[in-house]
Design a binder for these strands. Structure first.
Length: 572
RNA sequence: GCGCCCGUAGCUCAGUGGAUAGAGCAACGGUUUUCUAAACCGUCGGUCGCAGGUUCGAAUCCUGCCGGGCGUACCA
């Protein structure tokens, strides 16, 4: 059990007769200011009313009876009725010693293991991935790692767009405007060109292309041999291009069940919905009306084609039958909010009502002009070139700062630092805000960035190298830890808060909760690093104590960054 | 029109109903014979869009208004 949970339980148990114990327990928070202690219980102000006593009197009673064991000092009543809790230094030191050989850093198994399906990334396979895909991919990957770290069963599902009308456009392009030489040299690029060609013609009002593309889609879905063969031909190179990016990003999936996988089930879905009376005919289409929504949920268009709504329902049906998940996350652009609201409602009415469905929405990626992010030519920015740019930015910095490192290693470091820059910039922002894509900020290597954390880690590793200390030997020796300096104590408390941070980040589905914590951790380490000599500490015992604290910090950073999908470096 | 999201320092953004609203960048000043200065310490900077309400307590919850983004039946 993490520290916060233990305090909450203790305070809940200390609730006097007539006081809502759960409310009192849940009112425990990390302290808002170091001078108020490490944690505070804020419930007495609100709860005193029901007892008819003053908040300070209630707080005093709670302080008297609460059993914090040897963990904390007796809480102090402050202000209008706050209870400030200070964790005992000797308890912190003892707990840190236990963590030295605890690979989880204090993360306990969950009370109840949940099965979580996370639907993320989901690119259209026919198009190169662009900057718009980064958020879903990086956020989804982080959430998957978080739930796994907390001991839950995670299924990472890439719901590929491999069957929709974009293929109709490509098929139209293939048949009317293809460049065989271009296709031979780079299939994906040529297919993307054809797609964009069709798209721009349609957007320009070319009804002929629109209709022709629709027909090609319909033929593909109906099993037309030529279109099916072309689809079979296109898919491998499309998938290969996508996998190359995931491999570079260090993102993996457990399943890649795209839209095509569900195609055979769609007719059955509509039949079932219709026979149960959920789905009805309307303006030639088959739709489900949902209370509170003006627009219905369309499961079959008037031309007979199924929609992504149908596919999404089939997907839920399949996932529930296959994995019986407790939680289903859709890491998708906030613009699809209405769709998911309807989808979840229809799924529940359809009988799949034991799943907690969540649309993990995120804001749009914008350019500096606050318009959706594009290159100067008006094209979307390819993900690959985005990564390359970040890496070369990192390389320039490493070349300038660490010319002594050999060039091959500098290249590897640049790759790691560059990817970290992109991921961290994305994850450190509240998901829901639109994301202003600022090159300078994105590749900045100081301040609240990936590189700052990697740097903090590298400095710790440097201490161990310079002192010729083997961290594994140190851990098994389990030295006594002393917290004489404020910087030591502040860092130690931060290490202890790792488990509750993961819990909070996962509950809120917010990676930036974790990045905030890691930034604070790296900050506290930097302060400690300035104030407390490690290798040249006054005594061998203090040296060991500080080595242990540094080692724990390094492990928190490594593990925490790992959950963001960011790797650490021995040197940089 | 209706729905969802947003409005916090010059800029980009954090902020689980709690105490004096915080970072990063930018600006200004300081710190290196000592473990990586990609760092640290300090200064400057705020009618938390506006107005009401609920509450012991509101940036946070509710209502209204103003401003912006997005979505709104056959793309996904």
């Amino acid at each position: 059990m993490n520290l916060l949970d233990r305090l909450r339980e203790s305070f809940a148990n200390a609730a006097p007769e007539g006081v809502d114990a759960a409310a009192l327990g849940n009112s425990v928070r990390p302290g808002t200011d170091a001078k108020f202690g490490d944690y505070q219980a804020n419930g007495c102000m609100a709860l005193a009313k029901s007892l008819g006593v003053s908040p300070r009197d209630l707080a005093a009673r709670v302080a008297e009876v609460v059993d914090l064991g040897d963990m904390a000092l007796k809480p102090e009543v402050a202000g209008p009725g706050f209870l400030n809790v200070r964790i005992r230094d000797d308890w912190i030191a003892r707990r840190l010693r236990e963590l030295l050989d605890d690979p989880t850093l204090g993360v306990a198994p969950p009370r109840r293991t949940r099965t979580v399906v996370i639907d993320f990334s989901s690119p259209n396979v026919a198009k190169p991935m662009h900057v718009g895909h980064i958020r879903s991919t990086v956020i989804g990957d982080c959430l998957a790692r978080l739930f796994e770290a907390l001991g839950h069963h995670v299924i990472r599902d890439n719901h590929l767009g491999d069957w929709g009308s974009q293929f109709g456009m490509i098929l139209w392009g293939w048949k009317n405007a293809r460049d065989d030489a271009a296709y031979a040299s780079s299939p994906v690029r040529e297919l993307a060109r054809l797609y964009r060609l069709a798209q721009s013609r349609i957007q320009g009002g070319d009804a002929g292309v629109e209709e022709a593309s629709r027909r090609e889609t319909a033929k593909l879905h109906a099993g037309d041999p030529e279109n099916r063969a072309l689809w079979q031909q296109f898919m491998p190179s499309c998938l290969e291009a996508i996998e190359a990016i995931y491999s570079r990003l260090g993102v993996r999936f457990d399943v890649r069940l795209g839209e095509s996988f569900y195609d055979p089930m769609l007719a059955g879905v509509v039949d079932d919905l219709t026979s149960r009376g959920f789905a009805v005919e309307s303006e030639g289409a088959t739709v489900v009306f949902v209370e509170g929504s003006k627009t219905p949920f369309m499961v079959r268009k008037s031309d007979g084609a199924f929609t992504y709504a149908t596919t999404d329902l089939a997907t839920i049906q399949y996932r529930v039958k296959t994995w019986n998940p407790d939680l289903m996350l859709y890491v998708v652009d906030h613009r699809q909010g209405d769709h998911f609201k309807l989808l979840f409602e229809v799924a529940r009415r359809w009988g799949f009502d034991r799943v907690d469905y969540r649309h993990v929405a995120f804001g749009t990626v914008l350019g500096a002009d606050r318009r959706p992010f594009k290159t100067r030519d008006g094209d979307v920015v390819g993900l690959e070139s985005l990564l390359d740019d970040a890496v070369s930015e990192a390389r320039a910095l490493i070349d300038a700062n660490s010319p002594d490192i050999d060039p091959d290693e500098r290249a590897r470091i640049a790759e790691t630092v560059g990817l970290a820059a992109i991921k961290y910039a994305d994850l450190s922002q509240n998901r829901l805000s639109d994301y202003v894509f600022d090159w300078k900020k994105m590749v900045a290597m100081n301040g609240n960035t990936g590189a700052y954390h990697q740097y903090a880690f590298a400095r710790i590793r440097s201490i161990f190298r310079k002192g010729e200390v083997d961290p594994y030997a140190l851990r098994s020796r389990r030295p006594e830890i002393t917290l004489g300096q404020p910087a030591e104590r502040a860092l130690a408390m931060q290490v202890l808060r790792f488990p509750e941070t993961l819990e909070l980040a996962a509950n809120e589905l917010k990676p930036n909760v974790l990045t905030d914590y890691l930034f604070e951790t790296a900050n506290r380490f930097s302060t400690f690093f300035e104030a407390c000599p490690v290798l040249k500490a006054e005594s061998a015992a203090l040296r060991d104590s500080r080595l242990a604290l540094s080692d724990l910090t390094a492990r928190v950073l490594e593990r925490g960054l790992g959950l963001l999908g960011i790797e650490v470096l021995e040197r940089m």
